[in-house]
Write a protein that binds this DNA or RNA. Sequence first.
RNA 1: GGCGGCGUAGCCAAGUGGUAAGGCAGCGCUCUGCAAAAGCGCUAUUCAUCGGUUCAAAUCCGGUCGCCGCCUCCA
Length: 462
Amino acid sequence: MRFYNTLTRRLEEFREIEKGNVGLYTCGPTVYDYPHIGNYRSYVFEDLVKRVFLHSGYRVRHVMNITDIDDKTIRKANELGMPLAEVTQKYIDAFHADLRALNVLPADVYPRATEHIPEMLKLIAVLLEKGFAYVRDGSVYFSIERFKEYGRLANLDRASLKAGASAAVDADEYEKEAVQDFVLWKGRKPGEPSWPAPFGEGRPGWHIECSAMSMKYLGPHFDIHMGGVDNIFPHHENEIAQSEAANGQAFVNYWLHCQHLVIDNKKMSKSLGNFYTLGDLLGRGCDPMAVRYLLLSTHYRKLLNFTLEGLEMAGQALARVKNFVFSLKNVEAEGEADPELAAVIRASLAAFSASLADDFNVSGALGVMFDLIHEVNARLNALTRADAAAVLAWVERLNAVLGVLGEADAGPLEAEIEARIALRQQARLEKNFARADEIRAELKKQGIVLIDTPGGVKWKKE
RNA sequence: GGCGGCGUAGCCAAGUGGUAAGGCAGCGCUCUGCAAAAGCGCUAUUCAUCGGUUCAAAUCCGGUCGCCGCCUCCA
């Protein structure tokens, strides 16, 4: 398996630290609002990576942090006049509900920043002791000057950092030795939650939580760290600095970053109103599996242009797969399994895996999937039940990685549907097509689609 | 100013030196009471553009045009 490592800016063959195991850390949400569809592109991609490893036989230990203490969560709590913990819990619950809807496998641990203050304090203490950090007015800063590797991940050198062309460089309210230094611990300010610390009461900076929590759950040196491209600098750069400075060893072997998503070719922004949460889309009647399919179908290192039209197309593509599964389930011929078909299936599975193993080429993998669907469709009439079962097993195998075929939701009872179909058949025999169509339309309203075949009437859920 | 990315059919999107995958949409035919589904066939002499290297370029090199990201808390 090979993929692009941001750290080296090259495609690299994956080599795990501990045979058969993958330690995976993914930057989770800051829980001050509902995540938008762009956030979910990253989480769905991370889920794909994890599933590809699982598919390849690795055991994966996945940690995703929850940032429940920072400027934004504090501001939100103040705005709503609610306790911080109550506000963050609300968004944490919403986040997990969205992940379930998108069929994202849960992480093994979701550590919260507020529950790991001691670990962070310990890490800061080490950095102070080793001389990488300094205290100013009750705050603690990391001195990038003292970490010679600083800028390696983002491919920035100190000179260009000094140029500081970004408009976002704020005249920080805290005193630092150098503007580029970042805060590890923020001295207490009125109206903000704070924790006692040897260097003065305060709260943690953003970056330190990921270092402290990843170390705690994955050790000082682990395999893969992921996030959105915007995290490369400064967040991940700072994590590397903190962790390697403290531990005196390599932190993470592979850094993977998911490109952003734009909506109608424009950057998402609240002022443009082109902001979708998953809830917005589901409210429009969109299928969360179509959302997942769409988010997945563009290579992760390319900008994805999200449009409602694209979502529609994704839904149609998915319908093709579902129809295929439906056809297979209705195969009734008895007989032996065709060895030639079995070989075709094996080759297809190998090609599918190979495509994903090549820097997570989902488009290529989907192409492989549709090729086989086409091929099997062409010989559908010649299939036996044993053949169909083999193809269905193939679908299941692919879906274990793609995760785009959700379970069918509960609908009207089968017996009831069968009864309605019998009534319609009676009407058809009597050439009462108006009545027959009426029944078909009623069932359609309940999400049941009828298909007349030479072998009788079949039905399926939409 | 520094670093980096992208431009492939009506739309989405692979392919990165050997002669354009796949999906959606569309068209024709088969099947059908009508639908739906499915099948078969068709749909890019061409990969933003100009030039170069090569037996061979969407793929490599150089220029041009257009779009975008990062350079301290945005997935």
